[in-house]
């Protein structure tokens, strides 16, 4: 588990956010924007390292905090990208911010994807809707260190073409031969030339070697069971399938109790669990 160096120093208040400047804002869809942040303090920024799948607490004083998974790759130094849907007070307040504004960041928190373990293996990533946000970090990481991974398959589904995030990038990737990328929507429009239907339908289009493939899933809660069923049908091992959960959080550091899932806390034990662990967490899937 990676934690910013400062938290390991005695006397540092883990609830105190570090000021970070918004360096870029990209409109992705009607409800989602991609924010690029830069921690202002040089020392803290220098010590900030994370694994894909970890999250930060985004802090806007006067409004509150919200846990947001990091979308950029760990290899991108000095900046953190957050893909944020306007859903509650904090995310709405963030959406109202402009480039140059200052917000607060605490983190990184939680357990991310087992990046070291995954190296040298094939990877199958399945995202639904906003679930692409944490997986985007993993995808970018694999992209940056492409030679470290075997075959990479990405299945990504959304309700309609307007809700496909990072489409500008994925549209280019579709033509690459080092990624197999399949997009699908429930409700297509006139311009849509990719697949139609649930993301689970895409499994019949792909071939994977279950002995050397790691799976990573993130999406709306209802999606997990069906995608895992498909992965199990492909005979993937339960402990090589990784899922990322979203739960209510306040502190992000295992104190406030809100993110309990079964006998674990999503914030410190997750948000990434392997399916074997998740199977043994009550009410998780």
């Amino acid at each position: 588990m990676k934690t910013a160096l400062a938290y390991q120093q005695a006397g540092v208040n883990p609830y105190r956010p570090w000021p970070a400047r918004i360096t870029s804002i990209l409109d992705l869809t009607e409800k989602e924007k991609l924010f690029e942040l830069r921690i202002i303090d040089d020392e803290v920024r220098g010590a900030f390292s994370f694994d894909s799948g970890q999250f930060v607490e985004l802090s806007i004083f006067g409004v509150g905090e919200a846990p947001i998974s990091i979308s950029s790759a760990p290899s991108k130094q000095g900046f953190i990208e957050l893909c944020v849907r306007e859903a509650g007070d904090v995310t709405s307040a963030l959406h109202a911010k402009r480039c140059g504004d200052i917000v607060g960041i605490r983190g990184p928190f939680g357990r991310g994807f087992p990046m070291q373990e995954m190296k040298g293996h094939d990877v199958l990533l399945v995202a639904g809707g906003l679930g692409i946000a944490p997986l985007k970090s993993l995808i970018n990481h694999i992209h940056d260190e492409r030679h470290e991974f075997g075959k990479v398959t990405i299945l990504y589904g959304a309700r309609n073409p307007d809700e496909i995030l990072f489409r500008y990038q994925f549209d280019m990737w579709k033509h690459r031969d080092d990624f197999e990328l399949i997009l699908t929507v429930d409700v297509p429009d006139d311009t849509w030339t990719d697949e139609v239907g649930r993301v689970t339908r895409l499994f019949e289009m792909i071939e994977i070697d279950p002995k050397k493939t790691y799976g990573a899933i993130c999406g709306p809660p209802v999606m997990y069971r069906y995608v895992i069923d498909e992965m199990r049908r492909k005979e993937m091992d339960v402990d090589r399938i990784y899922v990322s959960f979203e739960r209510r959080m306040k502190c992000g550091i295992g104190k406030c109790g809100h993110c309990g899932v079964g006998h674990q806390y999503t914030c410190i034990d997750g948000p990434v669990f392997n399916y074997w662990e998740a199977m043994n967490l009550q009410e998780a899937i």
């Binding site: 859903a87 509650g88 309990g260 006998h263 009410e283």
Partner: peptide, 28 residues
């Protein structure tokens, strides 16, 4: 207590909440 911003509530029923109190105390 366990509801996320966009509406999903992971422990909507009273029964699930009473259970969680004991589940966490005696096992979590």
């Amino acid at each position: 207590f366990a509801a996320v911003a966009h509406g999903q509530n992971f422990r909507e029923s009273r029964a699930s909440r009473v259970k969680y109190r004991y589940y966490h105390k005696q096992w979590g």
